[in-house]
Computed example of a mutant assay.
Amino acid sequence: MNKNITLYTTTMCPVCRMVREFLSNMNIEYKEINVDLNPIVRIKLIRKTRRLSVPQINIDGEWVFGFDPVRILKVLNAKAN
């Protein structure tokens, strides 16, 4: 699956850890950006999505918020077609 997947996280987020483990267990490659370490990215992310919470996952331009494995797979499958 050759998708552009970016996972936005924070250091102490247990739900972020769940998403990370899910993606890894499914052998889905992704880029992780910890917004605790990059406040400029955090501000841009909030402006773009209008959400303060993490995790936020961008899959080829489509957003998935929180830990929603069904939606993650649905978006990945839709982008594969």
Rank of each mutant, 00 (worst) to 15 (best):
F65G: 01
R51V: 14
K74I: 14
A78Y: 12
P69Q: 00
I43C: 07
E62R: 00
G61Y: 03
V15D: 09
S24P: 15
V75C: 05
I59R: 03
M26P: 00
F22Y: 13
R42V: 13
N25S: 13
I59F: 02
I43D: 01
K48Y: 06
K79F: 01
V75L: 05
A78E: 14
D68P: 04
L73W: 06
L76M: 11
V19F: 07
V15W: 06
K31E: 15
Q56F: 02
D68C: 08
I59H: 01
R51N: 05
E29A: 14
E29I: 01
Y30N: 11
K44I: 02
F67V: 01
L52G: 13
M26D: 05
R50K: 08
N38W: 13
V54F: 09
R20I: 15
K44D: 12
S53A: 12
R50W: 02
V15H: 07
A78R: 11
A78Q: 08
D68I: 03
M26I: 11
N25I: 03
D60Y: 00
A78G: 03
P39Y: 13
Y30T: 07
I33A: 03
T49Y: 15
E32N: 09
M26T: 05
F22D: 08
I40E: 09
F65C: 03
S53T: 12
M18W: 04
I46E: 14
V41R: 08
C16N: 12
V75Q: 08
D60E: 02
L45G: 12
M18L: 07
G61H: 12
I28H: 07
R47Q: 12
F65Y: 02
L37S: 07
I59W: 01
L23S: 02
N27W: 12
P39Q: 10
V15N: 14
N58K: 00
N77T: 10
V15I: 11
V70N: 01
C16L: 15
R51S: 11
K44C: 05
P39E: 06
N58E: 04
N25Y: 08
V64L: 04
N77V: 08
R20E: 15
V35N: 10
L73P: 13
A78N: 10
L73R: 15
G61S: 06
V54W: 02
A80V: 15
W63V: 00
I59Y: 03
E62L: 01
S24E: 07
E32K: 10
K31L: 08
I59D: 10
Q56P: 06
